[in-house]
């Protein structure tokens, strides 16, 4: 397991990523945007506060805006980081060379993913001070912040895996970029559209329940299920939250898990399935292909099953 994860690809990716000027620029831009939003909102509130006083709502409000914005930024950044990793290697013609080494295709994929995730983690960590400022406004629980970061990371990893999958599936980087962004957009907007559609056509005693599960695939819905209920803005999303935490509404629907937890599980399953598919697609002479093409080989192999290191 150790050899699967800790391998030279990770070190190399870090080195090349940090070597060029793009990374610092990207991090600065990312932080700049988040900071700017906080400031802009703060100023707006202060102007209003001149007449009506500084509301207790400001903390949660900025928190929601920041969280949503961070999620959107990560959704935007991640495919750019991952949708070119495999076909980038193919285009540079280094991919065959990698496969020739003792790295398995599983470890190549995992490390490529890990390199991108660490980069995203770096972005998230860099944004923590901004969140800390929000915390000092008050009105936000530390546990909620933790959950927001958890959901953001899970979303980023999911989109990252989607990017890697596309970059394996499609020969050309441009194609996989476009497809990845389309899929991300489907997650952010498409799931909501499907929910609205299903809600429209469904009748019966519990019309909203099944439709809801579609919307739980949406990271934004998951995010809003974390926010405190009374905060402004949550109301807009209430039709997607399926009665969860919504006052006096659809009380019949009792759910074991909250939407963000469903989302978390959904992400986990998707990540595992896509990773397995990616490794399967990559392996030129791997186990899976041997299974499929030559049953005789499998028998002899089972006999002399070598211990995997």
């Amino acid at each position: 397991m150790k050899s699967l994860v800790l391998n030279p690809i990770l070190a190399k990716e870090f080195r090349s990523r940090m070597r060029n000027w793009k990374s610092p620029l990207m991090i600065s831009l990312y932080l700049g945007l988040l900071g700017l939003i906080t400031l802009a909102y703060y100023w707006m509130q202060q102007k209003r506060g001149f007449y009506s006083g500084f509301g207790p709502d400001v903390g949660p409000q900025i928190f929601i805006i920041l969280s949503v914005f961070q999620l959107l930024l990560l959704s935007f950044v991640t495919p750019a980081l991952t949708a070119g990793v495999i076909n980038g290697e193919r285009e540079r013609q280094t991919f065959d060379l990698l496969l020739c080494t003792r790295l398995s295709s599983a470890s190549i994929v995992l490390n490529k993913l890990l390199a991108s995730i660490s980069y995203i983690l770096l972005l998230v960590i860099a944004s923590l001070p901004v969140f800390a400022i929000v915390y000092f406004f008050g009105g936000v629980l530390l546990s909620d912040m933790g959950r927001v970061i958890l959901v953001s990371m899970a979303t980023a990893i999911t989109f990252g895996v989607i990017g890697i999958f596309c970059s394996t599936l499609f020969k050309r980087t441009q194609v996989s970029m476009v497809v990845s962004y389309v899929v991300v957009l489907l997650f952010l907007v498409g799931t909501m559209a499907v929910t609205v559609f299903l809600q429209g056509i469904q009748t019966g005693p519990y019309p909203r329940v099944t439709a809801m599960y579609f919307s739980y695939a949406n990271p934004l819905v998951a995010l809003f299920s974390i926010f405190p209920n009374q905060a402004a803005g949550v109301g807009i999303m209430s039709s997607f939250l399926g009665g969860y935490r919504t006052y006096g509404y659809n009380a019949a629907v009792s759910q074991a898990l909250s939407p963000w937890q469903y989302n978390f599980i959904f992400d986990g399953v998707l990540i595992i399935v896509l990773l397995l598919l990616t490794v399967f697609l990559l392996d030129p002479v791997g186990r899976f292909k041997r299974l499929r093409k030559n049953p005789a080989v499998v028998e002899t192999e089972a006999e002399s099953a070598p211990a995997e290191g």
């Binding site: 050899s3 030279p8 070190a11 190399k12 080195r15 060029n20 540079r92 065959d96 060379l97 790295l103």
Partner: peptide
Amino acid sequence: GYMPDFFGVYDDLKVDEYLDFYSASYR
């Protein structure tokens, strides 16, 4: 040791880093 009919090179690595990367990939 297989050498294909093209060079596969990473443009952001130095010569010794390049060799180090592949040596590490061979564990």
